[in-house]
Amino acid sequence: MNARAAIDLTAKVNTPENIQFEYRIAGPFRRAPAFMLDLVIRASSITAVFILLFCTGIIQVLALPFSVAVVALFISYFLLDWFYGLFFETYWNGKTPGKWLTKIQVISADGRPISAYQATIRNFLRSADLAPFLSLQFLDPTFAPMYIIPTGLVAFLCMAFTTRFQRLGDLAAGTMVIVDERSWVPPSVKLEDPRVEALATYIPANFRMSRTMGRAIALYVARRSRMAVGRRAELSAILAKPLMQQFGFREDTSTDLLLCALYYREFVLKEIVAPGEEGSRPPASRPASYGTPLRQEVTHAPPIVASIASPSPKGVSE
């Protein structure tokens, strides 16, 4: 496990399709609520069985002996205690109801689905993970000295020392708990300002962006809609000012727009070409209505006024 994966809380998985993708790992603070929910579900199921057996008069109606009801209650408790997690994780694709509600899922550490065998191990070892137990006297000195209050320290310590937040049962079964990705709309960046397209055409054609710069600009553009105008200017200036020098742009060009234009050029406009065919496309025609940011053409108006929406640049050859 390399350091990066530990920091990013992701687990890389190689699929049979021979590609590599990442799962996000669920930490103790996602898993504890799932555990609590499962506990509540189990407790309320057993309470429901209890009420059904002893409070609805079903014993009298069916003329059952009292012991049958007690044993039925016991069997439900036993089954819920030992086979709840095993059953759901096997048949619900690694999710118990609590995990489903908190949107997490158990899978094998190698990315494959969890098998019944793994589900058995990790659920049978849960009691070891909940150790050490506190005595009931911890709550009230008059209670019987029964060591039944779980602390879960073993699980927490174990998660703290493993990179994939695995508890003892996870380690033994070779499983991990990941965030179950639900529908998630891809963040499509809307660059509605038509000046962006115009500005993009002024960026020198031979300008090549490094990967890290591309990432920084993409992050900025994805988040700029949530920033105040002043903040946009402040943040974008850090990256855009040196670039403006390099491109020979006027000092009063909007740095925010420049980053948007770079994004547009890099992630929307850019041709996908096989290596070796670069530069086969003629340069896009320049919508002229917004003026120019270049220093040599100072006579034109600066690119601030946006009155007419321009059509997107034509001249695309496929």
């Binding site: 998985v13 699929t15 590609i19 993708f21 990442e22 799962y23 996000r24 994780e89 096997t90 048949y91 619900w92 694709n93 690694g94 899922q105 899978i107 990315g111 494959r112 689905p113 969890i114 098998s115 019944a116 589900a119 990941i178 179950d180 990705e181 639900r182 998630w184 891809p186 963040p187 960046v189 591309g214 990432r215 993409a218 992050l219 994805a222 994004y263 890099e266 992630f267 850019k270």
Partner: peptide, 26 residues
């Protein structure tokens, strides 16, 4: 050179589909 957000999205989508395609057994 897809945008990073789209790459993130693809990671999640593929992960999601992967866990449906290779479901836990009986």
């Amino acid at each position: 050179k897809l945008p990073p957000a789209t790459v993130d999205y693809l990671h999640r989508l593929v992960g999601r589909a992967h866990s449906q395609l290779y479901r836990s057994g009986s």
